[in-house]
Design a binder for these strands. Structure first.
Lengths: 109, 109
DNA sequence: CGGCATCCACACGGATACTG
DNA sequence: CAGTATCCGTGTGGATGCCG
């Protein structure tokens, strides 16, 4: 567990702190695809393809520990695990909106 | 020059792209301290202390190449170089506002 | 199905020393 | 003053293989 921590010491700078939470190749996308849907591990892997298991599970782990994502495991066979945004994850995604818009207008996409 | 590039491929995801521009130990702070002031290299180093020359100049280099910061060198002795936010840097800082606020309220600082 | 273990490459931050 | 050159430690993404 806890393989990855923040690169930044997420010191006393709020910018750094928030950016640290979504710094990573797949984290912003994870927030996005989970916006309106609860998804299973396999679904996530499918939508973020090509992502490796290690990196995906590490990102999910980080974000779950950081309270952005909820993880629900069902004791069934075959196993089923569902991921969803927490309220904090949702509000973070919203706070990311202006940044996305900035990128779109400034970089023409 | 150009020692560092983005970790992320800043692919086609606007979030990744914008986040990549400010991912780095000192980049958010650089935007912040340059918000209302034009500052010299030594001033920046002083305000971001403790930052090493290599890392600071690399960050300045990145952000200058990315059009967030302007660099003006004066042909004097001793040398003088001034850094300031470009309009794009200013608008990016504004777009970062909600993220900073989110961090403050969610993480209680 | 939903991971974790292992190994690898390299991007990044930092300390120190030096220069135009 | 404003950097560059060098070396180093570690964080992070990725490929592959295995397991409950």
């Amino acid at each position: 567990m806890a393989q990855y921590t923040f690169r930044t010491r997420s010191s006393d700078c709020p910018y750094e702190l928030a950016i640290g939470l979504v710094s990573g190749r797949w984290k912003p996308r994870l927030l996005e695809v989970l916006k309106d849907e609860t998804l299973r591990y396999g679904d996530l892997k499918e939508r973020l393809k090509p992502v490796s298991d290690k990196v995906l599970s590490a990102a999910l782990d980080d974000m779950t520990r950081n309270g952005l994502i909820s993880r629900t495991a069902f004791a069934e066979i075959p196993p089923r695990v569902e991921y969803a945004l927490t309220p904090q994850g949702e509000s973070l995604l919203e706070a990311l909106g202006p940044l996305r818009d900035w990128a779109r207008t400034e970089n023409g996409r």
